[in-house]
Nucleic acid binder design. Structure first.
Lengths: 223, 223
DNA sequence: CCTACCGATCGGTAGG
DNA sequence: CCTACCGATCGGTAGG
């Protein structure tokens, strides 16, 4: 209602110590506050879109006043870029972890088909799992970024997608994937990324169901 | 610069007849102006997003003053809904036309595979062809709509997608499409709709290329 | 459909 | 990180 003015109606003793705890140099909760902002921004940007979300909304969701986000981020756009970069770093880390874990759990070398299964399953988790606002924001708020920031995000994105390339190539070589692998990759990402628009957690299909459906849809029998 | 104030600097004789031609009752160019607004809105909503586009931008793009869009539409949201409804009506009409034309051109009955080819090709045309801002706006500005308007758009969308259902079912029955046809439909639409994000007209792949790549990716050999 | 305008909100900042 | 604030812009309207 009165965004810029603190509401003291429930606070009859305005002068008592409240809110902000004193920070000791050791605590360095700066990182925490920044993370709080990032999380709040990711959630709101996803729900309402970048342009429809005010920096005041974000500040409030992180328990701050309207001017405070600009202590952590130069401007609103930098906040968006940080959300995207954070999301891509997490996704790339998760992806590498999932591939290593699967290879360790199996004998040693995974079939290309099993590799794709791991990649698809991880991608769906990143898109649709809990704590999953960052990547959808990156996917659907692309145009709100400046050219420079777009390039930075794009770099991480290429890194993420590069893992898929040899897997799809191997599947193409074995005849399990038909057609240009590069176009196939774009269409597979489309099929998965689109789930952001319709997937409802805990309703009918699980992420495992989606993974199997995707493999069935995209892959042929090995020749 | 001074959005609300007309710039008369290039207009030394303010009183002469200019701009708006007298409309006779027969001309009824109301429809034209409304269409101009819809076209301008579709283009801007697609390029910048709904929230980032001002009604002033749209008015200017249609050659009007800032208040005039509200003569044709109750508010900004109604303009968005109109763009989406117009887009869905065109798409459904095109789709029906394409199916009939293909059936007439062939002997009489199309194979399920050929049906899918026609549907995919038409969908890509609607998404990526010339004059193709309306459907991308519908796909990517979903959340900016109120619940009531969302339902109206959804109705037309179900109608459009209903044509695909028996085709995919037939392909599933023949073994050419593996897995739950309902999940397959969602993923196929995702794969195609995602092309809005990366397709560049006249660069490398044509819409025909994409159509064939899609069929190769999704379909198996007939059993 | 234009003119002239209003109230609300927004991104961002200076100073502490 | 808060307070207090500014200039700009925005959706929308009355009256013609």
């Amino acid at each position: 209602m009165i965004p810029d003015t603190p509401d003291h109606s429930t606070d009859p003793a305005p002068r008592r110590a409240r809110g902000r705890p004193r920070k000791t140099a050791d605590e360095r909760d700066d990182g925490n506050r920044r993370q709080d902002l990032l999380r709040a921004a990711a959630r709101l940007f996803r729900q309402q879109g970048f342009a429809a979300t005010s920096t005041r909304d974000i500040a409030a969701a992180a328990g701050m006043r309207s001017g405070s986000p600009f202590y952590h981020f130069e401007n609103k756009e930098a906040l968006l870029a940080a959300v995207m970069l954070e999301g891509m770093q997490r996704a790339t880390g998760r992806q590498a972890g999932a591939m290593h874990a699967a290879a360790a759990a199996a004998g040693q070398t995974l079939s290309a088909r099993d590799c794709l299964r791991v990649l698809v399953r991880n991608h769906l988790e990143v898109l649709l799992g809990a704590e999953s606002d960052f990547i959808p924001v990156m996917l659907y708020e692309w145009r709100s970024l400046s050219e420079v920031q777009r390039q930075a995000v794009n770099e991480l994105r290429r890194e993420y997608e590069a893992v898929w390339v040899p897997v799809l190539q191997a599947l193409h070589d074995s005849g399990e994937l038909q057609g240009d692998p590069s176009l196939a990759r774009l269409m597979i990402f489309g099929a998965l990324n689109w789930a952001v628009q319709w997937f409802e957690p805990g309703r009918r299909s699980s992420l495992d169901d989606l993974t199997e459906a995707a493999l069935q849809l995209f892959l042929k029998e090995a020749a």
